[in-house]
Amino acid sequence: MTAAAESGCEACPAHHTGNLIKLGVNMSSWDFVVALAGNPNTGKSTVFNSLTGLRQHTGNWPGKTVVRAEGGFSYQGSRYKLVDLPGTYSLLSTSTDEEVARDFILFGQPDVTVIVVDASLLERNLNLVLQVLEITDRAVVCLNLIDEAKRHGLAVDDRRLARDLGVPVVPTAARQKTGIPLLTQTISEVATGKVVCKPHRIENHPPALKRTIDQLAGQVVTAFPDLANPRWVALRLLEGDRRITEAIGTGEIGDLNQTAIVGDGSPLSPTAQEAT
């Protein structure tokens, strides 16, 4: 087979369908950690099950996943640990499930965060997507329930969405297993750095607030030059977020250098573990 033909085949998602090995919960070590976030009742658990081959109970009601579920899969020789976070509408308030999700994305430092959204309720779901993109720059949007959106007479332009959000967008219908191979492929591309995201950051704050944020973010950058998201940290500090203030005080926040993460199979940080 010629090199050209090989790369042509590799670009086709169908080529790798057979490479997905569902590992269930048999994970002793892993190369990459993938977090699964999203609004309640968007089918996160269904996506989780179709990736890991587990049969975690799914139900058609919001707030079904209370505890963090973990599973794994292997793709193209790399092992991925998948963490199903509780469904939340936002990451800004203080309820337990939102804190679990937020802390894991921030302190657990997943290699990729997959945000599952309901295609038929895109606007409301994007609120969470934008908040996640403020924290991390390695994300994949899983545009789920496209079949349901179609039934409601809605079409979502996933390429346009991907351009606006600055991260890959994969349309899926997880209940029918449509789009899962492409999702696996995209996750691995972001995890290995083949695809680099330029996530959308919220810039439309009023001028006065903008100046305040810039001022504080400047101080944060001086103290922690490696930080990937100083403006977000500044915002959280302004809001008096207890956990973030604590992390600044102990210097824990300085260890969160997103670009330096190498999947080494090491256990998650204690902060992320205690969320279980």
Partner: peptide, 10 residues
């Protein structure tokens, strides 16, 4: 921002 992006995509 969410409304603007959603509006353009849907």
């Amino acid at each position: 921002d969410a409304a603007r992006i959603a509006d353009r995509a849907v």
